[in-house]
């Protein structure tokens, strides 16, 4: 009869740490990309602001991005790190492309007989922001290739106790 091989203490600590970091990041990103847009849906109309996209759509994409960012952190000590990073970057690319195609903000100010309506097309800015997740995609692909061709090498460097 042999006793079950104990999980090395360091591995458990690393997983717990990654999980904690992932959850913290999920909460932080959710605050900015989910809570603020939802709050915005209540305040924007009274401030004369109207968006070409629904703020609930922004919150949905925000939740998706927060989820994938958390998954990337949680998956860091595993071989799923590269694919998770690719998925997270793809989620950002899709979110920016969809929101960019609808990114018209209309702002109306009424002051006595004066009515000013400003319509701002932010599509180009969303396309500009795409640069970051596209580079992130490359990074994820490199990490995936690293883990595929040299299994365990990355983990040995990032988590020396493993």
């Amino acid at each position: 009869m042999t006793a079950p091989k104990p999980v090395p203490e360091t591995e458990g600590v690393e997983r717990a740490r990654s999980l904690r970091a992932g959850l913290l990041i999920f909460l932080l990103i959710s605050l900015f990309l989910v809570a603020f847009p939802i709050a915005g849906t209540f305040f924007a109309p009274s401030e004369g602001l109207a968006f070409g996209f629904s703020l609930f759509l922004v919150a949905t994409f925000g939740g998706l991005i927060a989820f994938f960012t958390a998954v990337v952190w949680i998956a860091k000590p595993t071989r799923a790190y590269g694919p998770a990073k690719i998925a997270g970057s793809l989620a950002k690319v899709v979110a920016l492309l969809v929101l960019g195609s609808l990114a018209t903000v209309t702002y109306t100010v009424t002051s006595g007989p004066r009515v000013v309506t400003a319509s701002i097309d932010g599509g180009t800015l969303f396309l500009l922001l795409l640069i970051a997740p596209v580079i992130g995609l490359v990074s994820g692909a490199l990490m995936y290739l690293q883990d595929r061709h040299y299994p365990g090498r990355r983990l040995a460097v990032e988590f020396p106790g493993k």
């Binding site: 007989p113 004066r114 097309d121 180009t124």
Partner: peptide, 11 residues
């Protein structure tokens, strides 16, 4: 980068 369209109605 940012196209802006304004309409203004004023007395």
């Amino acid at each position: 980068l940012v196209p802006v369209h304004l309409t203004l109605t004023e007395d």
